[in-house]
Design a binder for these strands. Structure first.
Length: 625
RNA sequence: GCCGCUGUAGCUCAGUGGUAGAGCAGCUGUUUCGUAAACAGCAGGUCGUGAGUUCGAGUCUCACCGGCGGCUCCA
């Protein structure tokens, strides 16, 4: 039941156009076997198709440049992707940034020449001859079942290609080579590591520039940066992948857990605390020992093998087994927030979004088949509540189906997938299928939510478990007096707290709603003589469980305002002679709006009200110096 | 784990084989100020770690560790 996001995978979102994907079910991009790309004039094509072709042709022009600079280069595949294109190469030496400059310059020569791009179908035998020195192309040719293959060329360059191109190399739009990265041939880590050159491409220079600006904005709200600037958390080499939550970050972490606990009370969940360490026997029963042993922290103690828990489900199953339940006790919804540890491979760690030590808003639901649909609906409803309360948008819903490595019978997988699909439909959701992306023990529904700058993150997930109830021998007594195996659902809404905090920090750019803000208000005394009064205000607000600080530093008011603003404090309470006189404070909100002087009682009412209703202040982030 | 890049003060970054620097943050003092940065001074470093080359290494080489960008993986 792992709600973590996959690393964004441009290729996965690409419309594969090259003859590089022999996987069944991947449709050929071109229906016309003659692949006459130029039936419709380029300028008359829909914008999306034009962009696709520009990016695709740019990949060819890139390969042309690489082959010219490295005549011995072997070229592999180069599709268009989100924001641009890439091409994979096997080169005699690693590329460096200067190479990218040279390659880009060479690409511009091709653009300048405005060469015609020809496409045709040629017999496989001819293709083998043409590409006899190109092992990757030969491998691609062997993967093609047709008698002929697509062959594209412009100038001296030629490529094995399914097509989808501009008419000329002068139609590429605005592009720039971006970076070079490693990538396995055909995405398989057993294969050779190739060098992938990524390029950005947009129809106009303005759009390319806009993309770069957006990317810079995204960097400014990077949770690793904000975590440090807002004193929330940091990661440290002393324990890679294990966050240090600072006091302010701990307020946020506990705030989210408190919120989920409120919902658990409402939705009748039972919170439990189970052990951190379990005998390997438990992991053998659950199947995690066989499937994930290398990704767990295992050690020997007292001559027995112990595993630190990487998830709660086996512990919950053991708990279920330790009691006895009748149908009257179901559904049983076991929730747990204790910390989990996974020995993630070093190269995959990333800020808070991929860590080794984390916690989940995790729960497992044991129910009867009759209760299944209702439970799924309750979960959908609860998830939507959370998204709404946190100011996240409508989710994109995916149904992830049976993976290659799975346990159980195909028939029951099909049944479970059908059940989840029906539950989605009856709840009014449209969804897409994510083939083969289910967990090894069962299919799952994933909710993907877009953040404020358009990135999509997987948050909630609910999964049917077809394996553990049986392997643990779980039973309940039915109304018929007989023993039955319960259905088991894994579910999480926020996913891992760490990942959620990372995503949410970026979504809000650190402007958390007041109920989650580590510091909810800063009192700003104008001069030293106002500090005592400022402390009084803090005391009054503190009595209403508001988190308030007094900035008594030897700074001018402007500097204190600036500091509070940069710290994303929702309210600044300025106090000087006038306010002290009136037993009030001048209120300024986090967006810089001056709300004027308010009596202290009114300030308390406003802030406590905003907290208790979990209001989303909705203040747009202001420009930051 | 794999490919590439990278590591200098808390942060952002200069530093061309020859005595470790700046801005911000911090501390101290002066200033007592009305809505996004007052002024001055002080302090702050085994240049990621360990080897090697060299008369001499922050700088060159190698290994290891961490981080970054990807790939693979993600219960």
């Amino acid at each position: 039941m792992e709600p973590r996001e996959r690393a964004s995978r441009p290729a996965g979102q690409a419309r594969f156009c090259l003859l590089c994907d022999s996987a069944p079910g991947v449709a050929r991009a071109r229906e016309d076997p003659a692949m006459n790309d130029h039936d419709t004039p380029f300028d008359d094509l829909p914008a999306e198709e034009r962009l696709f072709r520009m990016r695709h042709s740019a990949a060819h022009v890139l390969a042309e440049a690489v082959l010219e600079l490295f005549p011995e280069a072997k070229y592999a595949i180069g599709p268009p992707v989100d924001n641009g294109f890439y091409y994979d190469f096997d080169l005699p030496r690693p590329l460096n940034p200067d190479d990218l400059v040279a390659l880009e310059a060479r690409m511009r020569v091709s653009v300048e020449r405005d060469l015609v791009i020809h496409g045709e179908q040629i017999p496989k035998a001819q293709a083998r001859e043409i590409f006899k020195d190109q092992p990757y192309k030969l491998e691609l040719i062997e993967g093609i079942t047709d008698d002929t293959v697509g062959y594209f060329r412009h100038g001296e360059f030629h490529d094995l290609c399914r097509g989808g191109h501009t008419e000329r190399t002068g139609q590429l739009g605005a592009f720039a080579l971006d970076r070079v990265a490693g990538a396995y041939w055909r995405g398989d880590e057993k294969n050779a590591m190739l060098q992938r050159v990524y390029g950005l491409l947009f129809p106009t220079a303005e759009e390319l520039e806009a993309f770069r600006v957006t990317r810079e904005e995204a960097e400014k709200r990077d949770h690793r940066r904000l975590g440090r600037e807002l004193d929330l958390f940091h990661l440290d080499a002393i324990s890679p992948g294990s966050p240090f939550y600072h006091p302010k970050g701990t307020v946020l972490y506990n705030g989210l857990i408190d919120y989920m606990r409120d919902l658990y009370r409402e939705y009748d969940y039972s919170e439990v605390i189970t052990p951190q360490l379990f005998s390997a026997d438990l992991w053998k029963i659950s199947g995690h020992y066989q499937n994930f042993r290398d990704d767990m922290f295992m050690f020997e103690a007292d001559e027995s093998e112990i595993g630190v828990k990487p998830m709660n489900c086996p512990g919950h199953c053991w708990f279920f087994k330790s009691g006895h339940y009748s149908y009257r006790d179901l559904p049983l919804r076991l929730a747990e927030f204790t910390r989990l540890h996974r020995f993630e491979r070093s190269g995959v760690l990333h800020g808070m979004t991929r860590v080794r030590s984390f916690s989940q808003d995790d729960a497992h639901i044991y129910c009867t088949p009759e209760q299944f649909e209702g439970e799924v609906h309750r979960f959908f409803e609860m998830s939507q509540r959370v998204y709404h309360d946190l100011g996240l948008g409508e989710p994109l819903v995916k149904l992830a189906t049976r993976p290659e490595k799975f346990v159980g019978e195909i028939a029951s997988w099909d049944a479970s997938e059908r059940l989840l699909g029906e539950a989605l439909t009856s709840a009014g959701y449209e969804y897409v299928i994510a083939p083969g992306e289910g967990a090894f023990y069962g299919p799952k529904v994933e909710f993907h939510v877009r953040d404020a700058i358009g990135r999509s993150w997987q948050l909630s997930t609910i999964q049917i478990d077809q394996a553990m109830p049986t392997s643990f021998g779980l039973e309940y007594t039915g109304a018929d007096g007989e023993s039955h195996t319960p259905m088991m659902l894994h579910r999480a809404i926020l996913g891992s707290l760490e990942r959620f905090i990372g995503v949410y920090t970026e979504h809000t750019a650190g402007h958390f709603p007041l109920w989650l803000a580590p510091v909810q208000a800063v009192v700003v005394p104008i001069a030293d003589r106002h500090v005592e009064y400022a402390e009084l205000i803090r005391t009054l607000l503190k009595a209403h469980r508001l988190r308030v600080e007094v900035d008594d530093s030897n700074e001018r008011m402007g500097a204190k305002i600036r500091r509070a603003q940069l710290q994303r404090v929702p309210y600044m309470l300025v106090v000087g002679d006038r306010e002290q006189e009136a037993e009030a404070a001048a209120v300024r909100d986090g967006s810089g709006v001056d709300l004027g002087a308010m009596p202290v009682t009114q300030i308390i009412e406003r802030l406590a009200g905003e907290r208790d209703t979990r209001a989303l202040h909705g203040a747009p982030p202001v420009a930051e110096g």
